[in-house]
Amino acid sequence: MKGKWVLFVTITSVFSCLLWMFGMGWALFDYFNCSAKSVAEAPAETVETDRNGIHIVALGDSLTRGTGDASGKGYVGYLMEDLEKRSDQKMQITNLGIKGQTSVQLAEQVKQQEVQRQIKLADTILITIGGNDLFRGGQTLAELDLQKVEGLKEEYSKNVDGILSSIRSQNTEANVFLIGLYNPFIDMEDANTTSQIVRDWNERSADISAKYPKAVFVPTFDLFQLKVEDYLYTDNFHPNSEGYQLIAERVAALLTW
């Protein structure tokens, strides 16, 4: 009995040994002989996905990501919790926010094929953008050069226009919410000037979104106008959990489909 076992193990070993040698040879051959057979790009219209439930796509910067929120949910997370309580429908959220993203980068992002597919499937699209364009990590405030701010705003307008028209060309039905900026520096010196700048900026965003059907500009300036320090994270720039909840409540009140 033992003898048979040994024979079995030996024979299996010999065969597997040959198999692995062959595998290794193939690996080396494939690695060193990779004549560039190009891989076909995916055809643009390939995928059918189930469209049941409500599909929300969130685009933008650190606000979409939830930077500063202790639980990491961000306004998108709180919004989802609220919606799940109110509705029985299946919710699907795709959060494509990237920290530090500017409007130029977002304009690039919405051109990606998979992002476009997500946009196509969406019932609601949420966008937070512009904070990094305007404040540039506090640099704008340090200089406070109105001429320069004007230039930034023109640049931003062009990008947002591109983003919205790209979204509309993919999806004519979804409601698009462009969430406005608040002034995180409202407690500091030059508050009047900075608030003026942010208000002008928001006005521009509202003007641009008005050009597109079913696009809604959502102001947040007033939410953070009084007692701003209560709603900001320790970096004095991003909202904290309470701040995010305020934004989520405001957006939740507007959502319909």
Binding site: W20, F22, G23, M24, W26, A27, K37, V39
Partner: peptide, 22 residues
């Protein structure tokens, strides 16, 4: 990505096991 090409998974696994064997 110049030399990228597609192979079926069984071949890939066999190649990996060959290297793992070595």
């Amino acid at each position: 990505t110049a030399g990228t090409h597609l192979i079926p998974q069984w071949q890939y696994i066999l190649m990996e096991f060959g290297l793992a064997w070595f």
